[in-house]
Design a protein around this nucleic acid. Structure first.
Lengths: 107, 107
DNA sequence: ATCATCGTTCGATGCACGTCGTACTTTGAG
DNA sequence: CTCAAAGTACGACGTGCATCGAACGATGAT
């Protein structure tokens, strides 16, 4: 099994984080992980194929937003909430708050 | 002169805003506009050609981040800070704060 | 009218990205 | 050992995007 690499907190770039969050599928994944609970890839309900989901998880991991831990045949994904908040205080919470809110109805 | 269209506040999408901000050139432009002062396109110092700058300004405008006003031969661009803060409270301020901060030095 | 300036638009180019199916690897179960 | 399940890696495909130069249009100055 190949080692799973994660960038260190100091290396996270704002553009990279914003880009990772700018895809609706990835934003939904992050939202699903926002409860802090480790989740296996298969448990994530994203409307894409297995390979596409794996791709998105790699993008999130490379951007430093998530970490992945191997256990048996599973990969447990979790949000690096503390790390992100250390590097960009308030950002993740702010994005998550708006991601879970519906758009206001126009007058 | 064609009319310049801007989306209304309620139509702004989080993914769209994040995507617009995820490009380093556009993030720099937004940062330059953060003082609230109307700026003509030519005054913006972005390391790209005139046509590319015009493209980025269009992306920002379509995402609802900026507004453009024509006056004579100039186009005055300004940040829609209030609108964005109405739709996504705290987001822009948070991003701008981190955009202007240097990355911490690794230990 | 002529010209220079400011900015947009167009066409082209090359690259990045989202998506998929398939093949592969790893792991645990029988 | 064999087999199924969980993810990953790979190749392919179409699309979107960042970039540029050149052409164009609008405006104001001469």
């Amino acid at each position: 099994m190949r080692a799973i690499s994660h960038p260190i907190t100091e290396q996270l770039s704002l553009s990279g984080v914003l880009h990772a969050l700018s895809d609706p599928v990835r934003l939904a994944i992050v939202r699903e992980l926002a409860d802090g609970i480790e989740t296996s890839c298969g448990e994530l309900r994203a409307p894409v194929s297995k390979s596409t989901l794996s791709h998105h998880l790699k993008v999130l991991r490379d951007a430093g937003l998530t970490q992945t831990r191997a256990e048996g045949v599973h990969r447990f994904v979790s949000l690096r909430a503390v790390d992100i908040d250390t590097r960009f205080p308030g950002l993740l919470g702010c994005v998550l708050e708006h991601a879970s809110r519906r758009a206001p109805r126009p007058i």
